[in-house]
């Protein structure tokens, strides 16, 4: 765990006794998880294990039905204002990028700044260019998403989220829809963020990446957290039988 996190102490995300059902399907079961500020969490597990649903509950793209979720000191209830406040502070990057196809790259990055953060257009554009430079594609600012490669689009999506100055970043399988050649450029961008101390929850199947950036790795199966461990322990000495089987299937 980084020093920064232990100094600040307070939790970025606190989930206790969280349950959720899709119809009669119990997708999240008794989730207890505390993420400290500045902590990097990687969540892995087989498909359908509830890992995407878990991080989508943090910014209320999915509604939990039982338990408590507190994000940055604000409890998630159905109060719309608390949801908007949390969403503006929690950045999210999706598997399918979800850029706005009718807007240019620059407009993609300034829209929420102008309408949610109420920043003047010039300031919003300045901030957008700063983050586009950071993800190394400032020269694409006036193109449309369809003109960019998948890796470039995903980096724009990261820049778009960063423009809102989020306190927490959620990544939902950010490289799963990418051609193999483009995975590295996106992972490098996320790694850069991690080095700057951003609080992050990352759902991914990239195990070597997880080993490098994660403070803790969470393994989920059938809607439950099976194991939480530091990366070196997680890979070298997985405790749970299910974790061992999963690792043996995905590593060579």
């Amino acid at each position: 765990m980084s020093d920064l996190a232990s100094v600040q102490g307070a939790a970025a995300v606190e989930m206790s006794g969280v349950n959720k059902w899709f119809g009669s399907f119990h997708v999240l079961r008794e989730i207890d998880l505390t993420v400290k500020r500045g902590e990097r969490i990687v969540i892995c597990g087989p498909s359908g294990s509830g890992k995407s649903t878990l991080i989508r509950c943090i910014n209320r793209l999915e509604e939990h039905q039982q338990g408590r979720i507190v994000v940055d000191g604000v409890e998630l209830t159905s109060d719309l204002r608390s949801i908007d406040a949390i969403r503006a502070d929690v950045g999210m990057v999706f598997q399918q990028f979800n850029l706005f196809p009718h807007l240019t790259i620059l407009e993609n990055c300034t829209l929420a700044q102008i309408w949610v953060r109420r920043r003047p257009k010039a300031e919003a554009e300045e901030i957008a260019m700063k983050y586009l430079t950071r993800v190394r594609i400032p020269e694409q600012a006036n193109k449309y998403p369809a003109q960019l490669s998948g890796g470039q689009q995903q980096r724009v999506a990261i820049a778009r989220a960063l423009c809102m100055n989020p306190k927490i970043m959620l990544f939902d399988e950010p490289t799963s829809a990418l051609d193999p050649e483009m995975i590295k450029e996106v992972l490098d961008t996320i790694r850069g963020l991690a080095e700057d101390g951003m609080t992050m929850l990352i759902v991914t199947h990239e195990m070597s990446f997880a080993r490098q950036v994660a403070d803790r790795i969470i393994f989920m199966d059938e809607g439950q957290i099976i194991e939480i461990n530091r990366p070196e322990e997680f890979f070298a000495h997985p405790k749970h039988e299910r974790t061992k089987r999963f690792l043996s299937q995905i590593l060579d």
């Binding site: 910014n59 793209l61 908007d84 969403r87 503006a88 929690v90 950045g91 999210m92 999706f94 979800n98 850029l99 706005f100 829209l111 929420a112 309408w115 949610v116 999506a157 778009r160 989220a161 809102m164």
Partner: peptide
């Protein structure tokens, strides 16, 4: 979803 995630 991405609009919601940005707080719109």
């Amino acid at each position: 979803e991405s609009a919601a995630a940005l707080g719109l």
